[in-house]
Design a protein around this nucleic acid. Structure first.
Length: 596
DNA sequence: ATCGTTCGCCAC
DNA sequence: AAACGTGGCGAACGAT
């Protein structure tokens, strides 16, 4: 009989492990099987019945499994589906008003048996060093000594399946858990495959911007020259341009009084030193954050390999650890270059968050505005006399909770013209201000207020429409400020987290479709190599680029249907095939108003 | 010296 | 023109 699910426990030392076939509810079918070579046994079962693999934590198991699978089955070295207990646990805890409790297998096991619950270990950089012989890093499960890991896995999984079924909306919960687990697979594979990174292009860029690579830790020539010129322009006294306090003092001595050294303030300063400092800061940041040292650490052998943290952001967005994977500066995008004979398929979901708002609220005016393609232009036509920039500013202000200044006025216009959409975000804000929690479309729950927040706001009344300028009351000034701050958070959460739901469904579907594309050369298969909130990059043999493009479009459509059901709102993906990320995304500076 | 906090910039 | 959400990261800075 073909098991629908198979629980996996690796042995602590050596390549073996045990497999436990399960039915969909998590009930064991036959006895566990011990296998001497776990990766081989899993590859075999994957080919035969492609079960959903149940394991404690994808980042600890699958990353170690990938190279072994690649050795054995270069043509099909990926597993299709998994259930990640450690990713699912916090989702369920959130739905059960137990947000933030420990998520490890050991913690879930302890809760199941009324034992003391161990705190989670701090998540360090992945245990890449040592221990090459075991599929597991040194045991991070936190199970009590003597507990059989496979038994615990099976029990906790069955309990999670029961909790999913018992949740208020099991269908959505099941989808959320499956998507989060699929995200775990994608993250591990992206770390394994890496983002193609051209050292030569990177070097050329650095040379143009900074000059030749300095020896040791010395300052690059162009940076040093700028620092010198800046010092001269500010009177000639020794000056560290990286020290805000020194810079403020030096400008003050020139008769220029600044409150900060931020770019937006410096841009309005009429003094020859200001443009020099702006340029210095720009180059200095490139050098410090993405210079030669960065490349030596993170982008070796033609691949940038960061570590992605699935669900690392409360909204369900991913975070990254090391290398700043989610903040690659636009100016360096040219260094992302496909291998010879390969292409990058770059797709981003334009105007994702306002479209999510339209779909969730079912606001007829917003739906109309988005129907023609450019939602901001549609909004402008409906309510802003065609002024697209003001429409965009107003809508972003509404989703971020802006109330002051000119943007506040724009938000007020939107509230009149799109009451259903604005009502949704306003309701989320009110819930947050009152200390409540809100959920994404698929049911990801936002963190509840901290004890400190509750203390601070105790007894304060919630703000209302009349208090939008933020005056609060004399007695409750801090309380009102904290309440409004939480309101902005929950207001944004419902949108950002639901956008993350959609994006997760997108990459899960795209991963599945990429695996199904027939390939000419075993192993030369399209790979997801980058994912950043509303944007993906697939690295593919050139002749498969069109198939990848189609897979992207189908996955976007599937994500819309899965997450938002029958909504008329579309989530178009702007897709480009190119050799470099820069070519796919266009210019470095000006024309960048189209993407979000 | 080492640690945690603040500033400021990068991405969405 | 500059307070408006989520993050990572590096240099400066101040405390230990």
């Amino acid at each position: 009989m073909a098991a629908q699910r198979v629980a996996v426990a690796a042995e602590q030392d050596g390549p073996g492990g045990r497999l436990q076939p399960l039915d969909e509810s998590g009930t064991p079918l036959d006895g566990p099987v011990r296998v001497p070579d776990l990766a081989a046994a899993m590859a075999e079962r994957e080919a035969a019945e492609s079960p959903r693999w149940v394991w404690a934590a994808t980042d600890e198991v699958y990353g170690r499994l990938l190279p072994r699978l690649a050795e054995r089955q270069p043509a099909k070295n990926r597993l299709a589906r998994c259930h990640d207990l450690k990713l699912v646990e916090p989702l369920l805890l959130g739905l059960e008003d137990r947000y933030g409790q420990p998520r490890s297998l050991g913690a879930a096991w302890a809760r199941l048996h009324g034992l003391p619950v161990p705190a989670d270990l701090p998540e360090g950089p992945a245990a890449t060093d040592s221990d090459q012989d075991s599929l597991f890093a040194p045991d991070r499960s936190l199970l009590p000594p003597g507990t059989d890991p496979l038994e615990a896995l099976v029990a906790v999984h069955a309990e999670q399946q029961r909790r999913i079924a018992a949740s208020a909306e099991p269908g959505r919960t099941r989808l959320l858990c499956a998507a989060e687990s699929a995200g775990g697979l994608v993250a591990a594979e992206m770390g394994f495959d890496g983002l193609p990174w051209s050292a030569r292009v990177h070097d050329d860029l650095l040379y143009d911007l900074l000059g030749p690579r300095p020896r040791g830790g010395a300052q690059p020539a162009k940076l040093a020259a700028l620092a010198h010129d800046l010092q001269e322009a500010l009177g000639g006294k020794p000056l560290n341009p990286d020290s805000p306090s020194q810079v403020l003092r030096a400008f003050a001595e020139q008769g220029v009084s600044l409150t900060t050294t931020r770019n937006w303030e410096l841009r309005n300063v009429d003094h020859p030193a200001a443009p020099l400092l702006l340029r210095y800061k720009e180059l200095s940041r490139i050098h410090a954050a993405h210079g030669w040292a960065w490349r030596d650490t993170w982008a070796r052998d033609g691949r940038f390999r960061p570590e992605y943290v699935v669900g690392g952001v409360v909204s369900g967005r991913w975070a990254s650890r090391g290398g700043g994977a989610l903040q690659i500066p636009r100016i360096l995008r040219g260094a992302v270059v496909a291998d010879p004979g390969w292409r990058l398929v770059v797709a981003d979901a334009g105007q994702l968050e306002p479209r999510v708002l339209a779909a969730m609220s079912n606001d007829p005016g917003m739906i109309r505005a988005g129907a023609a393609g450019d939602l901001y232009a549609g909004l402008a036509a409906e309510a802003f006399k065609g002024d697209r920039a003001r429409a965009k500013l107003g809508l972003l202000g509404a989703m971020y909770g802006q109330t002051t200044g000119e943007t506040g006025q724009l938000v007020a216009v939107l509230r009149r013209r799109f009451p259903q959409a604005m009502g949704l975000v306003e309701a989320a804000a009110r819930t947050g201000e009152a200390g409540g929690v809100v959920r994404s479309q698929l049911g990801r729950v936002c963190p509840p207020p901290s004890a400190g927040w509750l203390d601070q706001t105790a007894g304060a009344f919630t703000t209302d429409e009349g208090d939008l300028d933020g005056t609060g009351t004399a007695a409750g000034g801090n309380a009102a400020r904290d309440a409004r701050s939480r309101g902005r958070f929950t207001r944004n959460f419902v949108i950002q987290a639901s956008a993350a739901d959609w994006a997760l469904a997108l990459i899960a579907g795209l991963r599945r479709r990429l695996a199904a594309i027939p390939v000419d050369v075993p192993g030369d298969r399209p790979r997801l190599v980058f994912f950043q909130h509303d944007e993906v990059i697939v690295h593919t043999p050139a002749q498969l680029a069109d198939a990848v493009r189609a897979a992207v479009a189908e996955s976007g459509e599937e994500a819309r249907r899965l997450v938002f059901g029958a909504t008329p709102v579309r989530f178009p993906l702007d897709t480009h095939v190119a050799v470099s990320y820069l070519d796919a995304k266009g210019g470095s500076d000006d024309d960048s108003d189209e993407e979000d």
